[in-house]
Amino acid sequence: MTFWKLFARNRGAVVGLGILVLIAVMAATASLFFPADPFSLAGKPMSPPGENGFLLGSDSLGRDVAAGIAHGAKTSLLIGLLATLVAVGIGIVMGALAGYYGGPIDNLLMRVTEMFQTIPSFIFAILLVAIMKPSIESIVIAIAVVSWPAVARLVRGEFLSLRNREFVQACHTLGMSDVRIMLGEILPNCLSPVIVIGSLMVATAILIESGLAFLGLGDPNIMSWGFQIGAGRTLLRSAWWVCTFPGIAILLTVLAINLVGEGINDALNPRLRERT
């Protein structure tokens, strides 16, 4: 069966993918539909949804909530993907080295990994961003730094179980270099779980970014959903729309990514292939 057929067996995953595509399209076309800066003071402050030309209302300064959500989608997806790529990159390197060589290298790398795992990840991320000064780069770095240990653990486990298989031993006998074996032979065989964990990590990264922005640690020059919620929080009782809509956006995105992640898992996991 093709990947798509396997994936499509999970109805939820297809729905999730649909939502995700919509959000991606929204992010890509944000500048078409809302050409103005999302921070621009577009009209009467605190307008309820549908009034004064604001589809989803305006916030305390008269900024368009809908424009913020469209432009914020870009930020959220960008940070989610970038942070995940960096985290997966670090995780694969650490996990591969530890799993392939074992012994003292494994010991050292895993102790380092554990050190990172013992620190509560969100608090660690807050600390990192606060030290580095909030900006897109520092947020990506902070999220990556708190996320990679899970990937490292996973990759190490896969490498440990694969490194003594016959095909790897055959490669050794053929005189292939360690790097080539790791990248060319073992890694492709353990990619499926990495892709699954990576897809779920995007959701976590978006949540962390929103949390940071909510606490005022987002990049103040870039619109994001967390920022909108943080800025609208004090208005919750008098202008519910300011933080409700970005909240729904985060909810839908994270839900969609989780559904897609599960779909990928179903499709890639051989043990589940026969599941009906």
């Binding site: 921070f39 003071l41 300064l61 909030p134 005022g216 103040p220 020059n221 943080g230 800025a231 004090t234």
Partner: peptide, 28 residues
């Protein structure tokens, strides 16, 4: 507090109108 952040966001917009591009910086 939050009020000052909103003020900064407003000023960024207001000053853009006269061609002064600003970055906002919040620290502890």
């Amino acid at each position: 507090g939050e009020d000052w952040r909103r003020a900064g966001e407003y000023m960024k917009q207001a000053l853009a109108e006269i061609g002064i591009a600003i970055e906002l910086r919040y620290e502890d």
